[in-house]
Design a protein around this nucleic acid. Structure first.
Lengths: 217, 217, 217, 217
DNA sequence: TATGAATGAGAATTCATTCAT
DNA sequence: TATGAATGAATTCTCATTCAT
């Protein structure tokens, strides 16, 4: 009795179904965790939102923390990959910065629950998750720091501490998004992009662009 | 038979003792909340740490959330007052920035549990506390934004959006402290002051100082 | 140093004050117990209502149950005394019944909290209080049963079981008052008197009065 | 792999078991509430008595009050249904009264914990339960009042206020049962039936039966 | 694989009572 | 006598996790 196989993926149908269910659970978990916070969200709520049972949840994920971690990883991969692509697709440091900024702002602007989850709820979700978050921040900051070091080596920017500068950049960006998540200001997150770009450029010592479309709030 | 009074404060001894107990509870709560996080901390632990009974806790504070809020307020007053003093005691924007930065870094450097509590744990502690935190951030950012607007009006800095710039400043600072809280880097938080000062000055368009006066404690 | 004495009662002033305070506490307790029920009422509430402190309460009464019992006794004395007076002041069984009925309905009609306390809340207030209530009911029913036995002996009513008849009388009256306490029907409790009188008379075999003013609701 | 079903009820075995557990919990709750009273009974005790866990209790009932209410409803249905059947099975008002009286006395006589719970403990169990009890009394009294109105319309009894008369009947019955619950008198509740029947008949103006078997306690 | 009933170790909170002043 | 701060045992309810079917 050979098990059925999906002709497109040559993956056993059973496994495909399992993977789909897994994704469905992760999607549901994102909504629930973002809305209720890690601590207040219950596995019951996640199960309901995923239209499955508690037992089903525990078949796919060993526990609540692991579920959150999986969610975190899936989302972080996306963010980091897109940021890396943006950095790679631009040539000079200034446009790399612009591109990365655009990617991050656009991703969060279109995925507010994700932003809430990462920036507001996650940090207080227990040591294991905190550790994962620290690692993610480190990877993200390292991405920036790498670019800064390269720009510095190429003499495109003045002397600075790449790690601290990357942290500051990350923090400025992080705070702008957090404010938006918490207060809804600015109403459209991407609105803040040009001014934020200008501030970060100046901080890093990158040349100002010859730009006319200044937005003053 | 008049009740005994403290000769120094002319306050009834009973009330004085109660107020002391209240402070002791707040101190204990700070330790416990910082160590365990808001959610994981239990009222039992706080009571133990304060060397009182659970009932005693509830005599002084109506509940866990109110206890945390009281703690938040007490600490925030301190931070905001010191920052305002620092801003008032300096004359030009650049030294105002320096002074405020020093105050914040020093306060957190010497009160790591406080930093952990407010920067890491608090945000995920439920809507009421989140609201209080948003308000605190707003007040702090408004302090900075006010200075920026004044500096701009005086022609000391170029055109910028004071609110966004204040948010970015706050975020950069916040993230540096958070990294320190989470990873212990840099080992001495105040070490980061000069470079951070340089970054923020540049971001805001303040003149670079003729720098020989690096401050190493 | 002889203690001051009240010239009217030749009672030491201190004791007079204590007795007044005791009465004030009982009055407050009546209100609180009637409004919140025995279980849900707290000693704090009673203390507040009596404008005293918890410690003060415990000086005058050894505990919550004792307070309730004292209240019960004070009120029961009143009801039983008035009922006995009414019975004594009438000559024939029929007018005795009428008089007793009037007394009870009037007392409860003008003291609804008292009615609520006795008829609704008290029974579930714990074994000791239950025992006291049973005893009160017994005394009240005995009052009626005594009259019934006398009336029977005088040949004024037919044969019946005085105890059971008294219980039934008491129950009918009790239920009418309870309905009024719980639902507010009839709006004016004393309204129900004539019809209730008629029903009870018939039940006991007393002659119908030559009365024209029948009220049908 | 279809889930197993009970061949007799074609109900899934899982659900059948759950329903059985629910019933077992209700049975246990009746015992515990009757023995300890609503307020003093703890969910722990109920769980123990039901040989289940506290969590299990809360799986089947959302809380203590809901559990009590469910119990109340289940028992009240029984009483009301039996009373209605008794009323329906008799033809003339007098035998209807007799039949209903017998049903009620027999039910309580054989279920003393039930009687204790409903007549003594329940009334002081909080507003929600009190409301439910008021409604039950109303339904029961309405059953009687309906019969009285019909009998009156048919000219079988003299003029009276059906609602008040029903309340008085109910009260007399209620009090006799309550006395029995509280004091154990009369030792056999059903012993009181003939005399009580006679009293109520007279009260309502129903003809006396040609009966010789008087019982005097 | 999926279900949902069941578990049980806590959690926050309440409140009668005590007692130093 | 009076006060009100303090106590601590008891109680309801929660929820991550397990497991028989």
């Amino acid at each position: 009795m050979a098990s059925a196989t999906d002709p497109r993926t040559s993956e056993p149908v059973v496994q495909a179904r399992a993977r789909a269910r897994r994704e469905r659970i992760l999607d549901a978990a994102l909504q629930v965790f973002a809305r209720r916070g890690y601590r207040d969200a219950t596995m019951d709520e996640v199960a309901d939102a995923a239209a499955t049972s508690k037992g089903g949840l525990y078949f796919h994920f060993p526990g609540k923390e692991a579920l959150f971690l999986a969610l975190l990883e899936r989302s972080a991969e996306l963010l980091l990959r897109r940021t890396a692509e943006a950095l790679a697709s631009a040539s000079d440091p200034a446009s790399k910065l612009d591109a990365a900024l655009d990617v991050v702002l656009r991703l969060f602007a279109t995925h507010r629950p994700l932003a809430r989850l990462f920036l507001v709820e996650a940090m207080a979700a227990g040591p294991a998750i905190q550790g994962a978050l620290v690692e993610l921040r480190r990877r993200f900051a390292a991405l920036i720091a790498g670019e800064l070091a390269a720009a510095r080596a190429a003499g495109l920017i003045g002397p600075l501490d790449p790690d601290l500068a990357a942290t500051a950049c990350f923090g400025a960006l992080y705070e702008v998004v957090t404010q938006w998540v918490l207060t809804g200001n600015p109403p459209d997150l991407e609105q803040a992009a040009p001014e934020l770009r200008r501030l970060l450029r100046r901080m890093l010592g990158l040349p100002e662009p010859a730009e006319g479309n200044r937005t003053t709030r």
